[in-house]
Design a protein around this nucleic acid. Structure first.
Lengths: 114, 114
DNA sequence: TTGACAAATCGACAATCTTCGATACATTTA
DNA sequence: TAAATGTATCGAAGATTGTCGATTTGTCAA
């Protein structure tokens, strides 16, 4: 098994002085992970929750089936944005602290341009 | 012709207290616009340039054909991230100031969670 | 008006994505 | 061990996307 870094770990800021193909790919992967309304809502629900949220509590607010929600949670987790925690037979998800900070840094162009 | 707002104009921050379906869609559209390595590189090139950049100066650095670059420029412009300016027969593009600030605000979750 | 050239659009194809029902896996409880 | 239940994976269908060659549109100069 090869260790694969998450997009959020590899991505470079939009305003980086230079940006090679690999960094551009990782940065794009990060944004792509947020490029779906269901995943935007998941991140929003986790951000406004007081703590980790059970996957089973997402089906109804999202109006999506269990496999579909599981799919989106996996995409966000693979991107490095979410943390998964097993509690008995339930799966709890929370925002990954470092990823949140990295995301803000990647999307911040104010200091580079304009 | 109906006036259509750009995603960047309609989107709500990831950390908004509430997020209806329409806002989630606009926010996702904004991220989707940045969810491609070619478009990430375009934004990076424009961010690090001193001023507007001619479309013709993007084909070679990106290694993509003229129609493909034009396609990506349109996607970014439609999202509200780029400004297009016609200079003779050339098309110049630059980052849209307000959009850049909005993007940073949308992606910033630090004040909401963690 | 005509010719030249840059950019946008069209048409097509392959690849990827979203979604869900069905199924397999994992964990707890009887 | 067996039953129950929450989650992940599989397989498939329909939609969307990225790419480019060919063509059209728009702009300037003869």
């Amino acid at each position: 098994m090869v260790a694969v870094e998450t997009p959020v770990a590899c991505c470079a800021p939009l305003g980086a002085p230079t940006l090679d193909e690999e960094e551009a790919l990782a940065t794009a992967e990060l944004f792509k992970a947020l490029g779906d309304p269901a995943r935007v809502r998941i991140v929003n629900l986790l951000a406004t929750a007081r703590g980790p949220v059970c996957a089973c509590d997402l089906y109804e607010p999202l109006g999506l089936s269990q496999p579909t929600v599981s799919h989106h949670l996996k995409k966000l987790t693979d991107a490095g944005l979410l943390e998964r925690e097993q509690r008995g037979k339930w799966a709890y998800f929370a925002l990954e602290r470092e990823a949140i900070e990295k995301l803000a840094a990647v999307a911040d162009l104010k200091e580079v341009c304009c």
